[in-house]
């Protein structure tokens, strides 16, 4: 009889496979983008292994290119990664009873795609072996796809002419990521306020305008949510 781990793994892969196709352009673009701001192949591969978070990687590239201070890069990466705290809190119960090493590996490997596809099934399942297979196998698969396609971009970047404004691919990538997020009104207001705030405050030293924009955006989103709720209640 097939073990619970393998059944979980197979079901997880089947659910996750369609999502992983959408990942391919991201990975290739991230690879090209890292090279386009001047990282060497080794540095780009290193960033990919260490950080392993497309949004934070792409978001930090303009700041690294501009020589922004470390703490600002950290804050921006943190802001782009904050959603993982929510995912982590939501998915934590499925690791009940698992050893620390597995929890650590699972933390490093936690990505939007696997969470979005699998969180509901994972939280409903009772068998720890099935859950472990369903979570870890697609996560490792995602890691392999991401690393190999990014490497493709990293080593392919040199065949693209230098003066093609490739750094604009970063902006395109960030935009495409943002669009599905701003489908509701408070989110849209948060994004608009964040973007305009960053433009208006661009004169601040140390590229602080970015952080100021993020704070303004969060506050605006929160305020808009409150205001809309009050409107509905009245």
């Amino acid at each position: 009889m097939e073990s619970a781990f393998r059944r979980g793994a197979r079901e997880g892969l089947r659910d996750f496979l369609p999502v992983s196709v959408g990942l391919l352009p991201w990975a290739v673009v991230t690879g090209i983008a890292m090279r386009s701001i001047g990282l060497s192949e080794i540095e780009a591969l290193g960033m990919n292994l260490l950080v392993y978070a497309g949004t934070a990687q792409l978001g930090s590239l303009p700041l690294i290119a501009a020589g922004a201070p470390l703490w600002l890069i950290m804050l921006t990466a943190l802001a782009l990664n904050l959603r993982f705290i929510i995912f982590s809190a939501a998915i934590a119960p499925i690791f009940h009873g698992q050893p620390f090493a597995r929890r650590l590996a699972s933390s490093y490997l936690l990505v939007d795609g696997v969470f979005a596809v699998g969180a509901e099934k994972l939280l409903k399942a009772d068998d720890p072996q099935w859950r472990w297979g369903y979570y870890i196998v697609p996560s490792v698969f995602n890691w392999c796809v991401w690393q190999s396609c990014t490497a493709l971009g990293i080593f392919g970047a040199e065949f693209v002419p230098r003066d093609w404004s490739l750094e604009f691919m970063v902006t395109i990538a960030l935009m495409v990521m943002m669009l599905p997020m701003v489908r509701n009104r408070p989110m849209l207001i948060a994004a608009l306020a964040g973007g305009l705030g960053a433009v208006l405050l661009r004169g601040l030293p140390l590229r602080l305008g970015v952080v100021a924009g993020i704070v303004i955006g969060i506050a605006a989103g929160f305020a808009a949510e409150r205001w809309l709720l009050r409107g509905e209640a009245a």
Partner: peptide, 21 residues
């Protein structure tokens, strides 16, 4: 948790909009 939801959209926009404008 509700407040944190706005961080990614705000951060992405704070990076994108200045580059576009």
């Amino acid at each position: 948790q509700r407040t944190l939801r706005y961080a990614p959209a705000a951060a992405l926009s704070a990076l994108v909009v200045p580059d576009l404008l």
